[in-house]
Write a protein that binds this DNA or RNA. Structure first.
Lengths: 201, 201
DNA sequence: AATAGAAGCGGACCGCAGTCCGTTTTGATC
DNA sequence: GATCAAAACGGACTGCGGTCCGCTTCTATT
């Protein structure tokens, strides 16, 4: 089960120093606590450092940026989703016809956003190249592959880009939270969209 | 030619005080200069105030936020685009069949993003409800109407949301600038997408 | 012209993300 | 156990968007 990680895995033979490892654990634990208490948007890097009992520089050394921290916190959830659509049971995983996999992909993604969306938004915001983050690239490739398998010949790469846009956390959350759109209605619209996109070659 | 404005128009009989009007002109002129010199991302509210020779508070009183300033600067361009798709000549304006209008809408929007996109990105970023800004609502309604006219019965409102997502400035700019996608290729993909969406009732 | 109060002004101030650099900790080597 | 370079640390510092509030300027009224 080869899952793409959101943060650069330390390449093999260069172990982490003990204080670094300890501080990383402290920081992750503190971050989860703070998000529990104040929500993802309410977490600040300063209070995080304070809560974990480390300096602010340490936080940024570890995660690079606020978005980087959020991505690290998301990585478990991302990995789960990735595992399911790449190696899990059909119709999301391999084995089902491509259109059904596309439909299932959207449905699962919508459910995923509803569960982890706040974190995802916090991770996306102000990430200048949020489209080139490994997980986003992987989803894109997956969609492109499914489109090809479904027989779409007209620029599957760009069509995958468009479909990714439709599933962006920010828009989904906005539809659900502000416009009170039921998740099933989002899923139905997605089904309609991808069906039409791949219909007839 | 009734064009929706991006900033709340002062309702009728309450004229602007003369110093306020003068400062607004100073600020807009200074903002355009600074963007010319440093780019939209390089403009800071502090330097803008300094350049215009006013206090920082005045800038925020005038425009509310950085995003508000950018929207004000965009409003001419927005108004032009709005006028063209609502009242201009076909195929973008009324008179052409809905599918052709949809296609033209995307093509014009892509061209528009390539011209004013940096500003549009600066306006979008961190506008929590950027989807509810008057211009965005108008585009959305327009797309929805065209979809209905084209005979789409399956949730035109959400489908319009999805199509709006595809045309977001951030994604278009990313495709062109980072992935070197030619604008014509974007337009072709859009054409393919909307054709398939409305094909067959 | 005098006046009053509302509208506008300005810049000190706040909280935040992110940087910098002198100091401390760590673990491999002898 | 002593030594040392590399890695990690921490918190003062910067620059930003945005707020606040005492002061100034305008305009309507007389």
């Amino acid at each position: 089960m080869c899952v793409v990680s959101l943060i650069p895995i330390r390449p093999g033979l260069e172990p982490e120093r003990r204080d670094a490892a300890r501080n990383r654990e402290l920081l992750l634990r503190a971050a989860r606590e703070l998000i529990e208490e104040c929500g993802a948007d309410g977490l600040t890097m300063g209070t995080l450092a304070q809560r974990a009992g480390v300096g602010k520089g340490t936080v940024f050394r570890r995660f690079g940026s606020r978005a980087g921290l959020m991505m690290t916190l998301l990585s478990d959830a991302e990995a789960g989703f990735q595992g399911r659509f790449m190696f899990g049971p059909p119709p999301l995983g391999p084995g089902a016809p491509p259109l059904e996999r596309l439909i299932a992909f959207g449905e699962e993604r919508i459910a995923w956003v509803l569960e982890f969306g706040e974190l995802a938004r916090a991770a996306d915001v102000s990430a200048y190249n949020r489209f080139d983050v490994p997980a986003a690239v992987l989803w894109h490739r997956h969609l492109e592959m499914l489109l090809r398998e479904a027989g779409l010949t007209a620029d599957p790469w760009l069509m995958a880009t468009s479909l990714s846009a439709v599933l962006e956390p920010e828009r989904i959350l906005h539809a659900v939270r502000v416009h009170q759109i039921a998740p099933e209605r989002l899923a139905a619209s997605w089904r309609e969209l991808v069906s039409r996109v791949v219909r007839g070659a």
